[in-house]
Simulated assay, not measured.
Amino acid sequence: MTNLLLLALSAAAAVAPADNGGAPQQGLLPSSPWNVDYAEAECRLSRTFGAGADGYTLRIIRGANLKGVQYVVAGQSLKIRDWNHSGTLGLRPGERAYKLMVAWYRLPTGESAFQLLADDALRPDEIASTRGLVMEFDGAEPLVFAVGNLEKPLAALASCYDDLLTGWGIDPADIRNLKTAPDPLDLHTWHLYDDAWIGKAEKGKIWMSVRLDVSETGKAVGCHTLSPSGSAEVDTKVCVLSVKNARFKPAISTAGDKVKAPFILKIQIREQPATR
């Protein structure tokens, strides 16, 4: 925890004065332009803040969670904190903040990273007014990123996401018309993992993903592989078991009706690199 606290304090102090509450006003300044990555199963908006060992990469991701947005921060000086499972995403200027679930993990590069998962994207008025993102966890100084005007970067991310959905055979308008996406029930009863699959999956592959077509009653009625495991046998078994066992709370439209909707399922088929 000490490394994280010192880094947040020293980096912020170097680029911005503190406000009355002691937190940096401006935050870490960008050291690269925004970049949109059209990945296999998600769209990533990325930018680096700071430099070298004192640098962070911020990624804003749309993909598997159809209505959700992931905010991922990676850096050499981050310290994995397994005990902390919630964090806060704040928008500056202003006092608006959202308490979100957080996951800590290590990337294949060896960098530590954390992920905040929001249920929905920022509203248009929030996008227009936000100039800084603040990420806070219990017992640590906040990380503050001077993101600048987000309208064009997030518009590019939205365009990428629409293209991704279209490529999956999903009408982006259908997703925008959802109040809530399908919510999986009792994942442990789906029995989608088998140790024997590890040897059959493509070497180096950690995740695979499939699109499930979920009915108004919450049953999976179709399955389509999006990011294959590298083994046709594994891909087929995952789809067969998903259609047989998967159950959901149905999606709800903005009109309040239960509706058909897709669900993107990511399955870990090999362990992540070990944490240290």
Rank of each mutant, 00 (worst) to 15 (best):
L4T: 11
L7E: 14
V15L: 10
A18M: 13
G21F: 08
A23N: 13
G27K: 00
S32D: 08
E42N: 11
A53V: 09
I60Q: 13
G63F: 01
A64P: 00
V72A: 05
A74D: 15
S77F: 05
D82R: 11
H85M: 13
T88L: 14
L89H: 03
L91M: 04
R92D: 01
G94T: 07
L100C: 09
T109F: 09
G110T: 06
E111D: 15
E111I: 00
F114H: 06
F114V: 07
A121C: 05
D125C: 05
I127E: 05
A128Y: 07
S129Y: 01
T130M: 07
V134W: 03
V134P: 04
M135G: 02
M135K: 02
G139Q: 11
A140F: 10
A140N: 12
L143K: 03
K152H: 09
L157T: 00
L157S: 02
I175E: 03
R176D: 14
A181G: 04
A181R: 02
L185M: 12
L187M: 14
T189H: 10
L192Y: 08
A196I: 05
I206G: 00
V210K: 00
R211L: 14
V214L: 03
S215E: 01
E216V: 09
T217S: 15
K219I: 11
G222Y: 02
C223F: 03
H224F: 11
T225R: 00
T225K: 01
S229I: 02
V234F: 08
T236M: 12
S242N: 05
N245M: 12
A246S: 07
A246H: 01
R247F: 01
K249F: 07
P250C: 09
T254H: 07
G256N: 11
D257P: 05
K258Y: 06
K260Y: 10
P262K: 06
I264L: 12
L265A: 06
L265Q: 09
K266D: 15
I269C: 06
A274T: 08
R276D: 13
